[in-house]
Computed example of a mutant assay.
Amino acid sequence: MTPNYVKLVQDTVLPRIALCRQTFAATRAGDPAAAVRDAMARAACTDKVKPGMSIAITAGSRGIADFPELLTAIVAEVRARGADPFVVPSMGSHGGATAEGRPPCWPSWA
Results as ranks from 00 to 15, higher is better:
2 T>C: 06
2 T>W: 09
2 T>A: 11
3 P>S: 11
4 N>G: 05
4 N>E: 15
6 V>E: 14
6 V>D: 12
7 K>A: 13
7 K>M: 08
8 L>C: 01
8 L>S: 12
9 V>L: 14
9 V>S: 14
9 V>H: 06
9 V>W: 13
10 Q>P: 00
11 D>M: 02
13 V>G: 10
14 L>S: 09
16 R>L: 11
17 I>L: 15
18 A>K: 10
19 L>N: 08
19 L>S: 13
19 L>I: 04
20 C>V: 15
21 R>S: 13
22 Q>V: 12
22 Q>I: 15
23 T>H: 05
24 F>E: 08
24 F>P: 01
24 F>N: 13
27 T>R: 15
27 T>W: 04
27 T>P: 01
29 A>N: 02
29 A>I: 10
29 A>Y: 06
30 G>E: 09
30 G>A: 07
32 P>G: 12
32 P>T: 03
33 A>L: 05
33 A>E: 12
33 A>R: 11
34 A>D: 11
34 A>W: 00
37 R>I: 03
38 D>A: 14
40 M>T: 14
40 M>A: 06
40 M>V: 10
41 A>M: 03
43 A>W: 12
44 A>F: 03
44 A>G: 09
45 C>E: 11
45 C>I: 06
45 C>K: 04
47 D>W: 08
48 K>H: 14
49 V>F: 12
50 K>P: 02
50 K>R: 15
51 P>R: 04
51 P>N: 02
53 M>P: 00
53 M>V: 01
54 S>Q: 13
55 I>F: 14
55 I>E: 00
56 A>T: 01
56 A>D: 00
58 T>Y: 03
58 T>F: 15
59 A>F: 08
61 S>A: 13
65 A>C: 06
66 D>Y: 10
67 F>D: 07
67 F>A: 07
67 F>L: 03
67 F>V: 09
67 F>G: 11
68 P>K: 03
69 E>V: 00
70 L>Y: 00
70 L>F: 02
71 L>T: 08
71 L>Y: 03
72 T>W: 06
72 T>A: 09
72 T>K: 11
72 T>G: 14
72 T>E: 14
74 I>K: 02
74 I>V: 15
75 V>D: 02
75 V>M: 00
76 A>L: 06
76 A>I: 08
76 A>P: 01
76 A>K: 04
77 E>C: 12
78 V>L: 00
78 V>G: 00
79 R>I: 02
79 R>T: 07
79 R>M: 05
80 A>D: 06
80 A>Y: 07
81 R>Y: 00
81 R>K: 10
82 G>A: 01
82 G>H: 08
83 A>H: 04
84 D>V: 07
85 P>C: 05
85 P>M: 08
85 P>W: 06
86 F>A: 07
89 P>L: 08
90 S>W: 00
90 S>R: 02
90 S>Q: 04
91 M>G: 08
91 M>V: 05
91 M>S: 01
92 G>I: 06
92 G>H: 08
92 G>M: 06
93 S>A: 12
93 S>T: 05
93 S>K: 01
93 S>C: 07
94 H>M: 10
94 H>P: 01
94 H>Y: 13
97 A>D: 12
97 A>H: 09
97 A>K: 06
99 A>S: 07
99 A>E: 00
100 E>Q: 07
101 G>D: 01
102 R>Y: 02
102 R>G: 10
105 C>T: 15
105 C>P: 01
106 W>T: 03
106 W>V: 11
106 W>G: 01
108 S>G: 08
108 S>V: 14
109 W>Y: 06
109 W>M: 05
